[in-house]
Simulated scan of single mutants.
Amino acid sequence: MNYSISRKESHSFTLVALFAALMAVMGLIPKIDLPFGVPITLQSLATMLAGCLLGARRGFQSIALFLLAVAVGLPLLAGGRGGIGVFMAPSAGYLLGYPVAALVTGLVMRWLPHATPRQTGVSAFVAAVVGGVFVLHMMGIAGLVLVAHMDVMKAVWVDLAFVPGDLVKCGLCGLIVHTVSKAMPDWRFGGH
C-alpha cells in the first residue's frame, strides 16, 4: 500500500496545524473575566482569520483540531483552561461556535470580491462580521440559555457586552487580510 501524501495535502495539513497553533497563541493573551462566566479573549480573532485565510473547510478543521486538544486537557484556552469541563461552562456555546464561525466566515469570504487588497480587506471585515459576530454570538446565546439557564432576553443582553470588542476584532481581521493580500497576491482567500 502506498501511503504517500501529496504536496498539496501536506500544505493543507500544515496550514490547519498552524492556525490551530495560532488559536492557542491567542489564548496566551490574558482574558478579561466578566461576571456571567464568559471571558473576553482574542481567540475569536483567530477564528475569523482562519475562515478568511484558510477557507471554510480548512478553517473549520483548524479550530476543531484546537478544540480537540482543549477537550483532551491541554490548557490552551485563555487563562490556561482546558479539559472536557470547559464545554459544560456558560462559555460552551461560544467554544462550540468557534469552528462553525470559521466555516461560515470562510464561506462568506469565498463569495465576496477580492480583486484588490482593499476589496479583500473589506470582504474580510464583512465575512468576519457574519461568521465571527453574528453566527458565533447566536451560538453563544444558545449556550447561555442551555448551560447557564438564562432566559433568552437576558442572554441577548449579556451577549451584547461582546459586540463592540468583536467588531474591533473584525476590523483587525480586515487589516491583517488586507496586508496579506498586498504581500501575497496569489493567496487563495476563503479557500477560493
Rank of each mutant, 00 (worst) to 15 (best):
34 L>R: 11
18 L>E: 03
140 G>P: 15
164 P>Y: 15
182 K>M: 08
83 G>S: 06
122 V>F: 14
71 A>R: 09
179 T>H: 13
107 L>C: 05
77 L>M: 10
174 G>F: 06
159 D>A: 11
151 D>N: 14
102 A>S: 13
147 V>L: 07
174 G>L: 05
52 C>L: 07
26 M>I: 00
16 V>T: 05
144 L>G: 12
176 I>V: 12
121 G>E: 06
124 A>T: 09
85 G>W: 13
50 A>G: 01
25 V>L: 13
34 L>T: 07
31 K>F: 08
118 R>G: 06
133 V>F: 03
163 V>N: 11
127 A>T: 01
187 W>E: 12
10 S>T: 08
115 A>E: 13
28 L>P: 03
52 C>H: 14
148 A>H: 04
56 A>Q: 03
146 L>P: 08
178 H>Y: 15
8 K>N: 08
44 S>M: 14
10 S>R: 11
94 Y>G: 04
177 V>L: 11
114 H>N: 07
55 G>Y: 04
119 Q>Y: 04
168 V>P: 01
112 L>G: 08
103 L>W: 04
141 I>D: 02
139 M>D: 01
167 L>T: 02
145 V>H: 15
162 F>W: 08
3 Y>R: 15
91 S>K: 13
23 M>W: 09
40 I>V: 12
63 I>T: 01
52 C>M: 12
30 P>F: 10
37 G>T: 05
149 H>K: 08
63 I>D: 04
102 A>V: 05
121 G>R: 15
183 A>N: 13
124 A>C: 06
190 G>D: 03
141 I>F: 06
76 L>Y: 03
1 M>R: 14
135 V>N: 00
179 T>V: 09
153 M>Q: 14
132 G>C: 01
19 F>T: 03
9 E>L: 05
15 L>C: 07
99 P>W: 02
